[in-house]
């Protein structure tokens, strides 16, 4: 049945495409609706943004959101503050997760870093934990763009239908790299 395909962590569908898992749980927001032209105009790459939602039930009092690796690869960039990371993934893909908007100004406040730049990482591995409410308290949007930066190497990119995704469980982006780059 269409739309009912098996979805394993980092598993490639039959067509040879690469599946990137949702790095956090939340509601999908098209890039055009991100209030920052660098993301909205796709200058930083193509993908989708996630308005993060805590995994735990509100009753637990745990408001934190864990950012997990969307694929196997090398954690090429993890900013000391934890707000941005870049992964050299399968098929030569460069995947960027930017947690929140203008969050560089927080210099790590509200973030807990769980991995190190240069680490080999596995799909689903926790990288950063943050508190969306703490970001909002400091006047920042928690809306987080997830991008394939090197669009030149991409033939086609498909965004999950959403409207919500679960971290490390749902496929967020399906990417078909260009033949010559594989």
């Amino acid at each position: 049945m269409k739309g009912d395909m098996a979805r394993g962590a980092g598993a490639a569908p039959a067509t040879g495409a690469i599946e990137l898992l949702a790095p956090m749980s939340g509601r999908l927001v098209p890039l055009e609706e991100v209030p920052d032209p660098v993301f909205a105009e796709r200058m930083a790459g193509d993908g989708v943004a996630i308005e993060p939602e805590p995994e735990a039930s509100p009753a637990s009092g745990d408001r934190s959101v864990t950012v997990v690796a969307p694929c196997d690869g090398l954690l090429a960039v993890l900013f000391p503050g934890g707000h941005a990371m870049a992964i050299a993934g399968p098929g030569g893909l460069e995947v960027i997760v930017h947690v929140g908007l203008d969050t560089v100004e927080l210099a790590g406040a509200g973030f807990e870093v769980l991995a190190r730049q240069g680490d080999r990482i596995r799909a689903g591995q926790p990288l950063v934990r943050f508190d969306p409410a703490a970001l909002r308290d400091r006047g920042k949007r928690a809306l987080s763009p997830v991008l394939v930066a090197n669009v030149d190497a991409v033939e086609r990119l498909q965004v999950s239908a959403g409207p919500t995704v679960r971290a490390g469980r749902d496929v967020l982006l399906t990417v078909w790299p260009k033949e010559e780059t594989r």
Binding site: G45, A76, A86, A88, E94
Partner: peptide, 9 residues
């Protein structure tokens, strides 16, 4: 310089 990831790194 056409790789955002490498620039950031």
């Amino acid at each position: 310089a056409r790789s955002l990831m490498r620039l950031m790194a």
